[in-house]
Write a protein that binds this DNA or RNA. Structure first.
Length: 104
DNA sequence: GAAATGACAGAGT
DNA sequence: GACTCTGCCATTT
């Protein structure tokens, strides 16, 4: 069943990202699945890159395996934001990733 | 309508 | 554990 097929895929992606509470993270694949298109992790990244001035916690969206992923070339800032939420970031990886992974 | 782009994922080396 | 290659998908030009 389609939750909201009237809205574009991007809108559902943004909605899913906004549903991520502070101190939690979700992978691009999880966001894509939450948007109704599992496997479209790459599409999610593309949309985020072109999201423009959207007010969404994009820094809470990370790559699979606990990798930070990308952040428009500012992954260091992304790690800082995650740390500010109580998330332990080691290099380009997240410590206890499975523990803070939010199921959308 | 087709080709190119990009903030991925998984498997293999 | 880190790096490389291929596959997948939606958006934009």
């Amino acid at each position: 069943m389609s939750p909201e097929p009237r809205k574009p895929f991007a809108a559902r992606v943004f909605d899913a990202v906004r549903a991520i509470p502070s101190g939690r993270v979700a992978t691009y694949g999880d966001v894509a699945a939450a948007a109704g298109r599992p496997g479209a992790a790459r599409a999610v990244g593309t949309l985020m890159a072109n999201a423009g001035p959207r007010r969404i916690p994009a820094h809470r969206v990370v790559a699979a395996g606990g990798a930070l992923g990308g952040y428009g070339g500012h992954e260091a800032e992304k790690a800082a934001l995650l740390r500010a939420e109580g998330i332990t970031v080691v290099g380009r990886r997240i410590r206890g990733f499975a523990a803070i992974r939010c199921e959308i």
